[in-house]
Nucleic acid binder design. Structure first.
Length: 479
RNA sequence: GCUCCCAUCGUCUAGCGGUCUAGGACGUCGCCCUCUCACGGCGAAAACAGGGGUUCGAGUCCCCUUGGGAGCGCCA
């Protein structure tokens, strides 16, 4: 009798889907998929002031791009406020919650005093046992949980192990604000229960919340779901990941030219391991995933390793697939729109496809791939980069002139044929191959580096190649 | 301040009492390959935070110290 596993990813739509959230979503997804369960999506939009439709769209878009699909329609937390209040009514009726008339200033003073006396800044429960008759007129109360004051609350965490929090350190949290709106703490419990969530997987920053929420579950007489609090991702300096570290939304990673599969692999490997396996498919990850193998210490985000992994993925991706991925990503890459227009206008997509095998070998991201393909985008006469200028000496230009004539006779226009000619020109001139190949590279691409030069010749085609060489070659007889 | 969590190469990690003179990956540095840059191949430097226990035996278990981190709202 195995119950079906139900996990959920519950972002609050106050910003984009950041990388930490993406990993939380991934772990929920991996866990659910590995056990044949479901992953639900819940938008925690109870903070009306900060929640935006734009953020909701960005989060859904980010999840889709990452390939993390969820089951059913997303649940919107704000829409369930009535149900949340219903749960509070139950707790009130059962004597597990009470009305608190303490005002904002009063609470602030309470906290300040506690701090000053070296005590934790907690609510002192002053309205906990006061009779209703004491209620001040005209003040609408907040509803607080009548939390246990003695004993301890235990969280049997799948990642953190058995975590024990003394109840005296937990105060009577607010369930319903004085304006009648439910708090996050309440909403999460009621929603997870109603949605049938069996496993709550989220960041460790929620560990203390887990204890408070456990108390709410207990007050409601509901079973507590299994919990797994995964460590946070830190920046290179070991501190919490922030914008300064490049902790951007997942869409930023799309703009940087990363492949979703590579990012998935990287994120899964960050904090979770399956022996020494570094590169594995999503299918393997699903097969291998084991929440118990998730480490307990925070991991630093290493963009260099992500890049290396992405490079592996690009090289391993079949050319036609990579081409499709590249085309799909182009609108998001810097200068991608412009590049697309040029490729469309010049009809050089064919050349791009021909050059792709050589290009992908040299790129760690789609952005680098695009950069490497720039010689396909440029028009004659080519602007030669300063660094490559030095390659085009007078001798080199003369060699190009010689090469130009011989190449013109090449038919068919193949890499092998071109190589034979270039080698013979070098040999006849008594120089090394590089002495001809490098100037040729400068003439053809305007740069010092590029894919293999014979492949470049083929990708560019006879006419364009000959034209570019002529642009840089010394005039046949003149000077 | 209080509560909780964490601690193996620079980074991500393997290690679940003896197989550890600690393995892999990224990064770094050499060498090879080579038309450039990459890729690839080979190799090198690089870690069990410190101190006490427990045990025949500790990177692995316990405690303390130190160092990190998270949480302590009528935010989520």
């Amino acid at each position: 009798m195995t119950e079906t596993v139900v996990t959920r990813f519950a972002p609050s739509p106050t910003g984009f889907l950041h990388i930490g959230g993406a990993r939380t979503a991934l772990f929920n997804w991996l866990f659910a998929r590995s056990l044949g369960g479901k992953m639900l999506l819940r938008i925690e939009d109870t903070d009306r002031a900060r929640s935006t439709q734009g953020a909701i769209d960005a989060i859904l878009d980010g999840l889709k791009w990452l390939g993390l699909d969820w089951d059913g329609e997303p649940t919107f937390q704000f829409a369930r406020a009535d149900r949340h209040r219903e749960a509070v009514d139950q707790m009130l009726a059962d004597g597990r919650a009470y009305r608190c008339y303490a005002g904002a200033e009063e609470l602030e003073q309470m906290r300040a005093l506690a701090q000053a006396e070296g005590r934790p800044p907690r609510y002192d429960g002053r309205w906990r046992d006061r009779p209703a008759a004491d209620a001040p007129a005209g003040v609408s109360p907040a509803i607080r949980l009548k939390a246990p004051t003695e004993g301890e609350t235990v969280i049997d965490d799948l990642v953190q192990g058995r975590v024990v929090i003394p109840n005296k350190d937990l105060d009577d949290l607010v369930l319903l604000r004085s304006d009648g709106t439910p708090t996050y703490m309440l909403a999460v419990v009621v929603d997870d229960h109603d949605m049938g969530v069996t496993h709550v997987i989220r960041g460790v920053d929620h560990l203390t919340n887990a204890a408070r929420q456990t108390q709410i579950y207990q007050a409601l007489g509901w079973a507590v779901p299994k919990m797994a609090h995964i460590p946070l991702i830190h920046g290179p300096d070991g501190a919490k990941l922030s914008k300064r570290h490049g902790a951007l939304g997942v869409e930023a990673y799309r703009e940087m030219g990363f492949l979703p599969a590579a990012l998935r692999n990287y994120l899964a490997r960050l904090g979770w391991s399956h022996g020494d396996d570094e590169i594995f498919s999503t299918e393997q990850a699903v097969e291998w995933f084991d929440i118990g193998s998730v480490g307990r210490s925070a991991a630093r985000f290493d963009q260099l390793k992500l890049q290396n992994l992405n490079g592996h993925y690009m090289r391993a991706t079949p050319d036609d697939e990579l081409l499709a991925a590249f085309k799909a990503s182009l609108p998001y890459l810097p200068g991608g729109e412009e590049a697309k227009n040029k490729l469309d206008a010049t009809g050089r997509w064919d050349a791009f496809a021909i050059a792709l095998p050589g290009l992908k070998e040299r790129a760690k991201t789609l952005v680098e791939l695009l950069d490497g393909a720039r010689f396909l985008l440029d028009e004659r006469p080519l602007a030669v980069e300063p660094a490559a200028e030095g390659l085009l000496t007078a001798d080199a230009r003369a060699l190009l002139g010689e090469l130009s004539g011989r190449l013109a006779a090449l038919d068919p226009w193949t890499a092998d044929g071109a190589e034979e000619i270039v080698r013979s020109v070098a040999e006849d001139a008594g120089v090394k191959l590089g002495a001809v190949a490098q100037p040729l590279r400068a003439a053809l691409t305007g740069r010092k580096t590029s894919p293999g030069i014979f492949d470049v010749l083929v990708a560019l085609g006879r006419e364009e190649s000959l034209g570019r060489i002529a642009d840089q070659a010394a005039p046949p007889r003149a000077a």
